[in-house]
Amino acid sequence: MSLLLTIVQTILIGTGVLFFLVGSIGLLRFPDTYTRIHALTKADNLGLGMLVVGLLPFANSPQQALKILLCWVLILAASSVSAYLVANKLQNEEPDA
């Protein structure tokens, strides 16, 4: 059972880290700001999300587990709001957009 758990954790953390990497590469490779916002939110949502779920079994207490989950929820809110704000700002202020 614990072996199974370890395998699942490894897969989750590995995929999460992969999403971070993909997000960074997207940030570098995508041609304009809007597509870069898209790349970024993958890292926030999926990358950190999978990492958090993978790390949850390591928590020593339920409070700690909640703390870890809260980190993810906060980052989700922050990233979605800032993605919206930046896109909105670009839309309003770019002359030809």
């Binding site: 906060l74 809110a77 709001v81 919206y84 704000l85 909105n88 700002k89 309003n92």
Partner: peptide, 21 residues
């Protein structure tokens, strides 16, 4: 100061929940 900032519902809802936290 962007013109509609104070009225932006997403911004307002986000900060209203964030500040107490």
């Amino acid at each position: 100061i962007s013109e509609d900032g104070g009225n932006d519902p997403i911004l307002r809802n986000f900060t209203q929940r964030l500040i107490p936290l």
